[in-house]
Nucleic acid binder design. Structure first.
Lengths: 371, 371
DNA sequence: TTGAAAGCGCTACCAC
DNA sequence: GTGGTAGCGCTTTCAA
């Protein structure tokens, strides 16, 4: 038993030190500092004074243990180094920290087994909820880990088997990529290359979108799909391979922003003129892509919003659990010179980055003219 | 008192459920699962079986409370959306998670008061250590928060007053920017613009580096320093202002990667030819900057390594606290066409991104020829 | 080698 | 209104 009958000021500033200094019971301190009603003004003041005097801050571990809630959430993503993911995390963190939640961040490096392991660690840490961007949609270990918890889970851009209880924030890839494909087809392209990642929702949606674009315009499907990692290396290899084939596509859609750097290496190496020798569309914005010569046409979305919505959804579930429809956020095609005879100038106004402006969808697919 | 004398299997799988199922004492379970020696093989096996059978995972909150260590660290940065910061976080997270630590991530948005508040939150959560990139080096609230803890603190690219016990991982901005400035001066530039952020170490080092470059080459100091936020908006405003002046600089160094986008807006808007009408050097890499026409000369560093070193330093302190010299990591100037008569081609090989290659310093400043 | 029991710092229940 | 006190799930003496 510690020397508790003493003045208490020397103790490692816990709640009982405050109680001792204020000359009140430990429970009263807790009540006052937790903002619970039912304490006299005097007592409240005494507690507050003592707490301030001691520089007391409650131990969140003990609170969490007792309350069975930590006000922390876990985020597991593949790679925060990808600006897309970074924006999602940033959006989520903003909402969560405003709500008094902390974020435990984890990178899986896109390895499914790591996803599973990290989810488990976060659950051990008693996070109140999880935002996950798993590498795969059907990894048994990941699914098991997810099934293993009562904490609400929000998935971003992934759909899981029905038996998993989870909530979804998705992107309408179908729309943006479809618009892009229609633009290309309407510009006269007849053979389109599509570089995609593993078999997850965005990949499936993008393929479907391009296929439907062919069908919708009555053009014979001629789609080269290249699957692999969404890395610069794979972008380089994929494009190289496509172009080296017998009948290379005249237009390529990159289903991931990391692919762009690799693709550009190929393009510069081969001395291809984008928009003339080859049309290129990238999915998801990359910082300087609009300053490239020519600017890179892009299927845009608002990743920050994705993170925000995921966080809001999660907070909502913590408040009142309920079945919720998946949230699906817009995606829009921004035609730029890399995809053909498009004369858009390089942006010169700050306005180009103002959120409100960004959200609008390009009217591209409607005001096209067949060549 | 809960119904504890029963079989226990129905209890919310805590350590006592495992003990009950294994038919052993609670302490033995703890010992076995914590990997402590001194348990008979049979007992060990029984505990392991029971734990597996129940899918038991220890509650990290309770462990932390008891052990007075959480195996978690807090990271407070300005904005994870900045690829530089994202890489630092990523590097740190990699090292930490390998060591069994979790990362609590926080964004301050570059607001000093938020820094302080977030540090406090993390300390309440009993993180074992802190990696901080504060907005300011002399914010009283931040300093107070930092002084307030016994947990080791590692600062990245900042130096604090001596009375704060902290460890440092710094970048040798002086070298890289100095090389850049010498390159510019040797190329004939006589008036150099420098856009920097607030008065923190990188800013001071960069200014000093350029000044010393002037002095070292015996050129009369003609340096235009523009201070502000390191944002695209400020990059745009700063460059615009510099160019609008009576005697605009012929070369500009951007002391922050976020400035580049803004600067490029000005440059494209004005139709300036980089490397001819204006020479430009950016500090810290931006994804596509080497694919820009012309490629953007850059003062490089390895931000991932910065994060790794910070994490390693922190882990070291947790193991054995000790006074440690600040770590200072290299920075190197990569001249590219944006800074003048330089004929470097756009990279065509994947090799351009291989770490080993990156680390070497450009020999730029030595093999220059006065014009 | 093993287990009982004392707390880690806090909240919430209950009696005053 | 206020203050004891039980106990969140765990680790760690200490005795057996």
């Amino acid at each position: 038993m510690s020397k508790d009958s003493a003045e208490g000021a020397s103790t490692r500033t816990g709640i009982k030190a405050v109680a001792a200094l204020a000359g009140v019971g430990i429970a009263s301190v807790s009540r006052v500092l937790s903002g619970q009603p039912g304490s006299s003004p005097q007592l409240t003041q005494r507690v507050l004074d003592a707490a301030r005097q001691l520089g007391y801050a409650p131990n969140a571990l003990a609170q969490g243990l007792r309350r069975r809630a930590t006000r922390s959430i876990g985020f597991v993503g593949s790679d925060i180094t990808n600006p897309l993911i970074a924006s999602i995390v940033s959006g989520a963190e903003g909402v969560l920290s405003l709500a008094g939640f902390s974020v435990l961040l984890t990178n899986s490096g896109g390895v499914a087994s790591v996803d599973a392991e990290r989810i488990e660690v976060l659950l051990q840490r008693q996070v109140d909820g999880l935002i996950v961007l798993p590498a795969l949609e059907d990894d048994p270990a990941t699914l098991a880990a997810l099934r293993n918890t009562k904490a609400p889970v929000v998935l971003i851009d992934r759909t899981l088997p029905e038996d998993i209880v989870a909530h979804y924030v998705l992107s309408d890839h179908y729309r943006g990529v479809g618009d892009a494909a229609r633009h290309l087809l309407a510009s006269g392209h007849r053979r389109i290359g599509l570089v995609v990642g593993r078999d997850v929702r965005p990949t499936r949606e993008r393929i479907r979108a391009v296929e439907d674009a062919f069908d919708g315009l009555g053009v014979a499907r001629d789609l080269l799909v290249h699957r692999g990692m969404l890395s610069a290396e794979h972008g380089e290899a994929a494009l190289e391979e496509m172009l080296a084939g017998d009948a290379p596509p005249s237009a390529v859609i990159l289903g991931g922003n990391q692919l762009l750097e690799g693709a550009l290496r190929v393009i510069h190496r081969r001395g291809l003129r984008l928009g003339i020798d080859l049309s290129l569309v990238c999915c998801d914005d990359v910082p300087l892509s609009r300053f490239h010569q020519p600017p890179i046409a892009t299927v845009m979305r608002d990743p920050d919003l994705l993170g925000k919505r995921a966080a809001e959804l999660l907070l909502g579930q913590l408040e009142t659990p309920s079945a919720v429809e998946p949230v699906c956020l817009p995606t829009w095609f921004e035609p730029r010179a890399s995809c053909g005879t498009w004369s858009e100038k390089i942006p010169t106004k700050t306005a180009a980055k103002i959120p409100g402006t960004r959200r609008r969808r390009a009217a591209a697919s409607t005001d096209l003219v067949r060549e």
